[in-house]
Structures are given as C-alpha cells and as structure tokens.
C-alpha cells in the first residue's frame, strides 16, 4: 500500500467508524443504566430522515444534525414509554421500535418524494480540516479533516467517560444498572435515570443517522441504516461499556470495513454481496473472540417497578 493509499484507507476507516462510534457511545450510557435498546436502528434511520428533512427545511446541514438528534430522541421516547414506563420486555419493544422506525421513515419518504424515490440532494456536512493537527503525517488528515460530527464523537468519548466514572450522576447511573434496588434505597429515581439515559442514547443514534445522510451519502435512502444499530450494540460489548474503548472499537470496525474496499481494489475479486455481509460476520467473530472477557451491567434488560 502506497502512502497515498494508506492515507485514503485511514480516512475512510474513520469516516465509516464515526456513525458506529456515535450510536455505540449513546447505547453505552443507556446500557449502563440497565436498559438495552435494540431499537437503536430505528433511532438511526429516524435521525437520517430527520437530518435530511431538517437540512432541507433550514437550508443548512448543522440544523439538520440537530433535527436528526431530535428525531432519534423521539424514537427513544417511544421505546422508553413502553420499556421503562410500562416495564414491557426491552428486547421485544426494541424490535417493534426498529420495525416501526424503518416503516415510518419509509412511509414519510414515499409520501414526500414518491414511491420510486427521487434522488435527494442535500446540503452536506463538509469536512473541516483542523489547522496543525490535520498536517500530522499519515493520521492527521484521516482523523482531523473530517465532518464536524467526527469531532463531536472525539469530544463525547472523554466527556461521557468522565460523567460516567467521575461524577455523582455517573455513580447513580451505574448503580441503577447494577443494583437498582440498592439505588432506589439510596434515593435514586431509577426510572427517571433510565429515561434520561435512553433519551441520550436515542439522540446520539439520531446524530449517527444524520451523519450517514449528511456527511456520508449526501442523500436519504430507505433502510440506509443497514443494520448499523445492531453492529453498534455489539461494539458496546466489544468496548466493554467504556465510552473511550467504545470509540476505539468503533474505529477498529471502520478500519475493518474500509479494508474490504482496498482488498477489492487490490483484485481480490470478492462478490459484492459477500462484501456487504462482511461487517456482520466480523461482528459475530469479534463477539465470539472477545465477549467472554467482559461483563454486562447486572440489571441489563430487567424492567424496574418502583416500590412505594
């Protein structure tokens, strides 16, 4: 691989890893509170459509990202209403939210742009090169000449880590996920903490979706989330529920996906469909190889009823 190729590879690795990083970081916080949100995929696709419609309406990609976050959070709210409010099974609720999110965005898109779907062209989220940093040899342009959402992800990783492990709020959140009965006895409002953590996760997944539409594709397509929500949930496991490790795990996945492009370019004639399946197979393999060493929050996926 020549220097130019390597730079291109690293650049696409980061670009492909960022949406996973954003969604997985949000899900990390959600899962730390004891809630597993399989509906992440629904938040991502809602964020993509919300981002696209917002960018069109406000004629700017920045406000598009905000709309994407709102749309993702709205889907998170539907999930929370059933899984936290009513204490319904989190896996089934999440599955319904994913089906509904994919269906609803498809219906809105078809209603607005016709069943065949005219090719949208959106105001895009252009890369911003950070002076000095982007001139570091090799990794500089890959890491620091990206869309603003990438910098948001870099910033969120240490912030989320700090909140989670160094603040009283983070302690309450983790207690809620590990021992909700003890947390309640100590005066923590378990369901409120879980609601906030789930809405945060929904918003982050919405930003991931907006990144897909505005920074990545420059358009919206039905089902464009293509299973990234589920891969992000696996990335949380691989990153051991630690926001900083999760960022690295997501970038590693981005690199693995980017590598396929290059293998293909280097005349490893791999069928296109196999190539599409590789991220999913990688995730399975990575789970098989890694997961034994990590431990999920003890109360993950268990509904909570407050005791009066």
């Amino acid at each position: 691989m020549s220097q130019v190729e390597l730079t291109l590879f690293l650049e696409s690795a980061v670009r492909l890893g960022i949406p996973l990083a954003l969604a997985a970081m949000g899900e990390t916080i959600t899962e730390r509170s004891g809630v597993i949100n399989i509906g992440l995929e629904g938040s991502i696709i809602a964020g993509a459509l919300g981002g696209a419609l917002g960018a069109l309406a406000f004629e700017g990609a920045g406000l598009g990202v905000m709309s994407g976050a709102m749309a993702g959070m709205l889907v998170g709210l539907v999930f929370a209403a059933f899984a936290i409010g009513l204490g319904a099974d989190q896996i089934i609720t999440g599955t319904a939210v994913t089906i509904g999110g994919l269906g609803m965005t498809g219906a809105i898109y078809q209603a607005r742009f016709g069943a065949t779907g005219t090719e949208l062209s959106l105001p895009t989220l252009a890369p911003v090169a950070i002076p000095v940093l982007s001139e570091i040899p090799l990794v500089g342009s890959a890491l620091f000449a990206q869309a603003p959402t990438a910098y948001f992800a870099y910033l969120m990783a240490p912030i989320a880590w700090y909140l989670l492990f160094k603040t009283a709020w983070g302690l309450e959140l983790r207690a809620t996920g590990e021992a909700p009965a003890a947390a309640e006895a100590a005066g923590v409002r378990v369901r409120l903490v879980r609601l906030v953590a789930t809405l945060f996760g929904g918003a982050m997944a919405g930003i991931a979706g907006a990144h897909l539409a505005l920074a990545h594709a420059g358009t919206f397509a039905e089902n464009m989330s293509a299973g990234k929500g589920f891969i992000a949930i696996a990335v949380v496991v691989l990153g051991r529920w630690n926001p900083i490790l999760v960022l690295f795990a997501a970038l590693f996945f981005g690199a693995a996906s980017a590598l396929q492009f290059f293998l293909q370019a280097l005349a490893f004639a791999l069928a296109y469909q196999i190539f599409l399946a590789i991220p999913n197979m990688q995730t399975l393999a990575a789970l098989a190889g890694w997961v034994g060493k990590s431990r999920a929050p003890a109360a993950l996926a268990l509904p909570w009823e407050p005791h009066r």
Partner: peptide, 17 residues
C-alpha cells in the same frame, strides 16, 4: 405507501406489550 404495513406491525407489537 406500502411501508405503512410495517408501521401497523410495530403498532400491533406495542399494543400487545
């Protein structure tokens, strides 16, 4: 749009839950 069927499916699951 036929995508509404998916919305209906999601609603059914949520209603049962």
């Amino acid at each position: 749009p036929s995508a509404w069927v998916d919305v209906v499916e999601a609603l059914v699951i949520l209603a049962v839950l």
